[in-house]
Every structure is written in structure tokens, then in C-alpha cells.
Nucleic acid binder design. Structure first.
Lengths: 233, 233
DNA sequence: TAGTGGTCTAGACCACAAA
DNA sequence: TTGTGGTCTAGACCACTAT
């Protein structure tokens, strides 16, 4: 875990403003000497911070600290869930409904399971600063999630899964698009019917690549924006 | 360049369906032996395909080929520009205006240049299958781009930059959000005023990290959707 | 020409999955 | 227990930047 630790260390140093004067990190060789790590470790850590948009390396010149435009944006990549973006202080979740259903048709197909497989179906309304921010339709495979109730659904489901069930999400596919809000969804979000909704459809996989969670999120278009960095090789 | 070459080779093998029977790649050691490459090379290539969503490695088990839901989606990461997503066959670009202006106020700030710096300002309407798909407001630093005319603007600007000017884009920041279409933009896109627009604001950087291109794209919300994969470490 | 990041080698050992 | 991917070492050499 040296690489992860070192990535964290670098990240914290950057956040503390340690390199603000020069705008660049020490050289690879200096980092190797200072922290007693190997080149492999430095490169792994740096490439993580690069993909988070915190650093950009210029061959022959140095590794520069970036000030990106992430403030106020949700991150498309990285750790999923609003909790990661806002923390629990500004966030409140209302579970509108929790049902255990049998997957059929499109849902079974999307979740890659047999018809009739037990699935928890949730409808949650998430508030940021006490204003509706995101309406989430979501489905969880019971065989993986085991159990679901209001208390869990109104907390951070991913934290529950990680800490109590022992599942970690490894990656997720996302599709982003726009729809017009229907009457029901608009009412819940406190927006006029026909207003835009920023839609994110998310399929989440465990580390052995089993899909365990699908969701459709409708974000308040006046407040939600997403940041992502694309690197070209 | 061994890693890049090997990534390309693997990508093509996957696309040809070479591993369809088992659904998984040969083991690392087999790849090393078969292609005479090193573990370093294999791992580099694999991690590229993983971040494109083509593969997922499971420790202790193997590297599995994924069938993802990218079809019909634009890619958020990877090579920018509609040309990469649709090819030139289905795509047509109409340059509505090309002006050389002096950057002021917000534009100068966004492009991190002095007030009055020369900037090409473009308005382009891009058609896919002869229907308006994307209205693009974009700005290019003249000091980097050198020259711009209708012919270039109606082709692939990035290809012009790469092949004729010798600039390659290294990465770009993107912000995705939604707005309601104003009358002018709606008219050009052939949509009703007040309809949603899927907005992507893009800041593109050269490999020495100079911002050279900013743009605001308004996509036809009925047709555009974006795919991205998020990996959690 | 010196400094710096990028690529690569040839291994060793660890952690997890499947049998 | 064996096979597999993950992490790591300790270097060498290359490509690009800045002077």
C-alpha cells in the first residue's frame, strides 16, 4: 500500500499549499530521496493525482500543481455518491419508498439477473442545504445487499455496504443525458413540470465484477453540475 | 512505445472477438510469453483498456472482456470531438461565424490571458445524419492556433491542429450541466425555445499545459448522451 | 549540456480466487 | 494448493526542457 499512502501524503501536502510558492512539486529524484520511496511508488501516486486533476507533469520540466474548476461541481469519476461531494452535514436523504420486488423485463435485463430475482427498489429524495437536489430511483440485488431498511436508505448506502456488509464498489458505468421532468418527479424536486432534468444512470459493480446496483438520478438542473477531466494518451 | 502498441494490439484482438469463447484474456504470463513483452508493458496496456471500459481484471481470477453500454453514447473521456465518436461520414459542420477578437472580461479570465489578447471566436453548428446535433461556441488563442478559416472550421479542427500546426491536446477539463435553450440557440438547433440543452463546457490544454481552447457546447437533448466509467481505487 | 519526467527491464514477493 | 493479478525493487536508458 505504499503507493496509496504516498498518493494521500502528496494530496495532503498539495491541499496544505506546501508547493504554492513554486507551483511545482520537488523532482521525482528528490521525492524518492526525501520520502525513501521508489520511483515506481512516486509514479503511481503522481498518476493518481494527475487523473484527479490536481497535478500535471511536463516532461523535462517538472510536476505542476493545477488549480482546477472543480469547486461546486460533483465529480463524475472518483468515489460515487453525494456524500463524497458534500459530506453528511449539508446532505439529508428522505426515503420515499422501499420495496422488495421481483425483477422483470427491462429491469432484469439491466441487472443481468433472472426474471423474478429479488431486488430492493428504492425511491429517495436527497436534499442539499435543505433543498431538493436529486431524486433517485435505485435497485439493489438482495443476494448481495442482504438487507435494506429506512434507516440505511436515509444514511449513506455505500457506507453501509462497505462497513457492514463488506462489499466495495469497484467501478461503475454512467450515462449522462437530459430529460424533461414529468409531473410526479417535478413535484418532488419542487420544480415546474417540463423543466430540464439532468439524468445520470449508473450501474455499479463489485470488485469481482458483478452488477449489484442500478440507479437513475434526476438532478435539479439549476444546481447540479459535473466535473470531469479527460486525458489523452 | 511498446506499451501503446501492445494496447492497440490487444484492443484490436478484443474487437475482432478473439476472446469471445472464454470471455477472458490469456494470463499475464501467457501474454508475456506469446508476444515477447514484459510485465510492465502488459500492465500498462491493460490499465488503458480498463479505463476505456473494455476489460476488467479480477485478482486471482483473470482479465475479463466487458461488453459495456457505450453504443450510441459520446465518450466523456478519451479523444475529444464528435469526429472521434461518429467518424466524418455522418458528421457535417457549418461555420456560422469566425471572428478574430480581443479577449476581455470573463473570456480573458477563462482563457488565462491578458485583456486584448487575440482570440478566434467561432460559432459552429454540427449535424449528425443531417440533423442539428450540437451548437458550439468556441475560442482559440491565436498565438497557438496561428490561423483559422471557414475550411478549417468546417473540418475537424483538432486534426488540423495536430497534423498541420503540430499541436496535440494533452487533456481537457469538462463541466456538464443543463440549461434551457434561448430563442437564438433553439432556432439553430431546430428545437422549441425553453427546451433543455445538455451543456458541456470544455477547456483544452496543450502538453505543456497551456490552455488554448475553451468552448461551450449545447447538445440536442433528444439525441446526445454521454458515457463514462468511474473506477474506484 | 544538465536536469527532469517517461519508458522499460528482469526480476521478487504478496493477495486473492478457484479447485 | 495452485494459478492469477497486484505491488514493489533497483536499477538502465530515452525524450524533452531549459540554459
Amino acid at each position: 500500500m505504499k503507493t496509496q499512502e504516498f498518493a494521500k501524503l502528496l494530496h495532503q501536502s498539495i491541499e496544505r499549499g506546501e508547493y504554492r510558492e513554486t507551483g511545482k512539486l520537488p523532482t521525482e529524484d528528490e521525492l524518492i530521496a526525501t520520502y525513501g520511496v521508489t520511483r515506481y511508488c512516486v509514479r503511481g501516486a503522481v498518476s493518481q493525482l494527475v487523473s484527479l486533476g490536481e497535478l500535471y507533469p511536463v516532461q523535462g520540466s517538472g510536476m505542476y500543481v493545477r488549480e482546477s474548476k472543480r469547486e461546486g461541481c460533483l465529480s463524475v469519476n472518483g468515489v460515487p455518491g453525494l456524500t463524497a461531494d458534500f459530506g453528511e452535514g449539508r446532505l439529508r436523504t428522505e426515503a420515499k419508498s422501499i420495496e422488495l420486488i421481483g425483477a422483470t423485463g427491462d429491469l432484469a435485463k439491466r441487472m443481468k439477473c433472472a426474471e423474478g430475482t429479488e431486488v430492493y427498489q428504492l425511491l429517495r429524495l436527497r436534499y442539499v442545504d435543505e433543498k431538493p437536489f436529486d431524486l433517485e430511483y435505485s435497485w439493489y440485488l438482495k443476494s448481495i445487499v442482504r438487507y435494506m431498511n429506512r434507516e440505511i436508505a436515509e444514511g449513506s448506502i455505500y457506507r453501509y455496504l462497505r462497513e457492514d456488509v463488506g462489499i466495495t464498489i469497484a467501478f461503475s458505468d454512467k450515462i449522462m443525458r437530459t430529460e424533461k421532468l414529468g409531473a410526479f418527479d417535478a413535484e418532488l424536486l419542487g420544480l415546474p413540470e417540463g423543466d430540464p432534468a439532468l439524468i445520470v444512470e449508473d450501474d455499479a459493480y463489485t470488485s469481482n465484477c458483478q452488477l449489484f446496483n442500478a440507479s437513475k438520478n434526476l438532478y435539479d438542473w439549476t444546481r447540479a453540475k459535473f466535473f470531469t477531466l479527460s486525458q489523452i494518451k
